[in-house]
Amino acid sequence: MLAVISVLWVLVAGAVLLLSGTAGQTWGWLWCVLAFAPLIVLAWAILRPARRRAALTAGFAVVIVLIGLGVAQLAQPSIERVNEVSANLPVPSDAHLMSVDSYPNDWCTQGCSYVERLYSVPDGAASVATFEASLQEDGWHHVQARWCRGDYGVVATAVPRDSDRFASQAPPPDGLEALLVTTSAQC
């Protein structure tokens, strides 16, 4: 009986955590473990007549915690986590943030969540080279046309002043160019 209830609980709660995006948040692992915690109480109650109730419940608790952590690992990072990674990237010291645009997509339909940060820089091409060297020093790996680490991917591009991007947004100040850093939840 405990096994049937546990399997159903894990399937339903796991689906809710994954589909709602909760499992992919910064503290998603904690929510996953807490969502499965009632199963530990259930095990304690069901195993009441067992001789080794404490040991069986402790073993079951370990399994439940591991399942909760596993569900959190399956989740795509939320836009919150992508933004956190994006904010901590080693952009050149002479770069000045112009704008931040977030595009959440926790279900990763037609691409995963990503954040675009636009910076004004003295030289776009030089800034891309400096930025990519800094990424490599920080442990990012070049994979095809992007830099990857864990679940995250980063692409840096120099944006010319005459780009269509500046039709709806102010261009960088005179004498400066633009650096676009796109951080995504998918490498």
Score class of each variant (00 low, 15 high):
residue 1 M to R: 06
residue 10 V to P: 07
residue 11 L to N: 07
residue 11 L to D: 04
residue 13 A to P: 08
residue 14 G to Q: 01
residue 17 L to K: 03
residue 17 L to T: 04
residue 17 L to G: 07
residue 17 L to D: 07
residue 18 L to Y: 08
residue 18 L to A: 10
residue 19 L to K: 06
residue 22 T to E: 03
residue 23 A to M: 11
residue 23 A to T: 10
residue 23 A to Y: 01
residue 24 G to R: 05
residue 25 Q to H: 14
residue 25 Q to T: 15
residue 28 G to Y: 13
residue 34 L to W: 12
residue 34 L to C: 13
residue 36 F to G: 05
residue 41 V to D: 01
residue 42 L to P: 08
residue 44 W to G: 05
residue 45 A to M: 10
residue 45 A to G: 03
residue 46 I to S: 05
residue 46 I to Q: 11
residue 47 L to K: 08
residue 47 L to V: 01
residue 48 R to F: 11
residue 52 R to E: 14
residue 53 R to P: 05
residue 56 L to W: 13
residue 56 L to F: 11
residue 56 L to G: 12
residue 59 G to A: 10
residue 68 G to R: 04
residue 68 G to E: 11
residue 68 G to M: 05
residue 73 Q to H: 05
residue 74 L to P: 00
residue 77 P to R: 14
residue 77 P to Y: 07
residue 78 S to H: 07
residue 78 S to Q: 11
residue 79 I to L: 08
residue 81 R to Y: 02
residue 81 R to N: 10
residue 82 V to F: 11
residue 84 E to R: 13
residue 87 A to L: 09
residue 88 N to Y: 04
residue 88 N to A: 15
residue 91 V to I: 15
residue 91 V to H: 04
residue 94 D to K: 12
residue 98 M to T: 05
residue 100 V to Y: 00
residue 102 S to Q: 15
residue 109 T to C: 02
residue 111 G to D: 09
residue 114 Y to H: 15
residue 115 V to D: 04
residue 118 L to N: 12
residue 118 L to T: 14
residue 120 S to C: 01
residue 121 V to G: 12
residue 124 G to E: 13
residue 130 T to M: 10
residue 132 E to D: 15
residue 134 S to L: 07
residue 137 E to T: 13
residue 142 H to Y: 03
residue 145 A to Y: 10
residue 146 R to L: 12
residue 148 C to V: 14
residue 149 R to G: 06
residue 154 V to L: 02
residue 157 T to W: 07
residue 158 A to S: 15
residue 160 P to G: 03
residue 161 R to V: 15
residue 161 R to T: 09
residue 167 A to L: 14
residue 170 A to W: 00
residue 170 A to Y: 00
residue 171 P to V: 11
residue 175 G to A: 08
residue 176 L to R: 13
residue 176 L to F: 11
residue 179 L to Y: 07
residue 181 V to E: 08
residue 183 T to Q: 03
